[in-house]
Every structure is written in C-alpha cells, then in structure tokens.
Amino acid sequence: MSSLSYAAPATVDEAIGLLAGASGLAKVLSGGTDLLVQLRSGRTRPALIVDTKKIPGIIGIREVDGGFVIGAATSGAMIGEHAALAAVYPGVVEATNLIGSTQVQGRASLAGNLCNASPAADSVPAMIAAGATAVIAGPKGRRTVPVEQVVTGPGRTSLARDEFIVEFHLPKRAPRSADAYLRFIPRTEMDIAVVGAGVNVTLDAAGVCTAARVSLGAVAPTALLVADCAAALVGSKLDEHALAKLDLAARDACKPIDDKRGTIDFRIKVAGVLARRAAAIAFERAAARS
C-alpha cells in the first residue's frame, strides 16, 4: 500500500522547501477540484500534497495601480462576487465562473485551472486574452510570466518541481477596452469546453479597434494566442469583412483532435463562430465604456 503525506505550510518559503525536498511526486493543492478527482480515479499517485491555502495572501483580490492582483488559490465564487473586478474584466470573471458547478466554484482556483494544464480550461483563454501574468515563486525568488507561457502541453507546465504560482496580475485597463469569453458545451452547464474563445479589445473614440488579443481553448494541445485573429480586428469596427477575417483566422489556427467531446471538423467551425460572437460582446462592452 502506498502512502500519501499532506502538508499545509504557512509561508511561501516553507512550501518551496517542501516541494524541493519531496522524495516522490509532489502536487500543489489549491482548491483541489481537479487534483482530488485525479487521486480518487488513480490517475495521479503523489507521495506529497502541499496545500497552499494557509499561505497569507494566496486567497484574495486586491486593486493595485489600477489593475488587479488575484491570489492563486482564490475561489471562483470570490472572483464572481468581486464587483469591481467583474466590471473591469467581465470576460475573465465569466470564464472563471463557468468552471464546474456551484459547489465546485466554492473551491476552484485560477492557479489550479491553469496548472492542471488541460487545453479546455475555461479561465485560461480569458486570462490570456486579458494579458494576465502569473507570479511564480521558487527557490531563486519570484518570476513573472505571461499566462500563455505557463502551459507547455496537455498536463505539462513550464514550472519547475519546486515552483508554484502565488498570484495573477491583470493590468490597468486602457479607456474603451473590455473582454468577453464564450465556450461551447453540448449542455448548458456542468461540462467541459469543446471550444473556448476569449477576446479582449480596445477601441478609439470612433469605435475603431486599436488593440486586440484573441485566445482559443480546446482546439490545440494548449490554449492559443492567435495573432492573426487580433490582426483581423485591429483597424475595424467589427464589420462583416472583419468578422469573416476573424472567423477564418480562428479556424486556421486550430489544431484540434477528434475525441469524445467533439470532432476536428466541428471544433474548427465552432472556433470561428465563437471568436466572432465573443468579439461582438467585447466590442459592445468596450463601446459602452466610452
């Protein structure tokens, strides 16, 4: 019979020390909504679980320099209830709140959703579109990396075994900018994205897009930041031509697989559809802020 150790350190350094010193596989626990399911099914058999939730500051949302700092283990429910965050980053908040069920929202965290490294994670394309960065703590101190550089493949991240995410930063918003996230699932909730699309745009006073970031989920081994989609939007007022270009760029970027959740053909087509629809929502939100 294998044994499993559990530790709940009170400081970042203590957590790093535990991860660095683990003799077998060590897993970082935030909300546990993925990890506990994997433990139960036998998909992962760690020797050590390091629970980060006792570390001061790892749960909570702060406004800093006009942007936001979100603790790595902050629950989806807390994120959904933060009125200021929801007003400025509605796309990130709506994406986070799509994860799991009401019960899961009480625990699920952004760090967990990201480090589980599923291509279908809902909050990830929204964070990438929003330009979010992750602050990673390790034995050599802290480093800040764009969210799109964290996941390297299904189930794999760029974090070293003795590193973990402590917080996320969402930058100060430019005027007339907003984000949106949409996902496709066969049902209406309690499901995993077949395709996800996050769009973040900035408009000028005339309603013309001056900057955009578009990210697609569940259509490649990792969530994609698609430059051609952004290029399709910049300079446009989201007319028919821009929408068609966006749709095509989104479809061209997809490298999906056939699996139990959707076919290659379906995923590619729906990626274009969702990119258009999410862009329309983001434009509308941004325009409403002028």
């Binding site: 066969p186 049902r187 209406t188 139990k260 959740r261």
Partner: peptide, 15 residues
C-alpha cells in the same frame, strides 16, 4: 471512452 457523467451527458436541470 466516456464511462462517467461528465462525458455521458444526461440532461442537467438548466437544459
């Protein structure tokens, strides 16, 4: 491939 309620999709109430 789908031996569970996540991917064997019975309707949920909101459906």
């Amino acid at each position: 491939d789908n031996a569970g309620f996540l991917d064997y999709r019975v309707p949920v109430a909101s459906d």
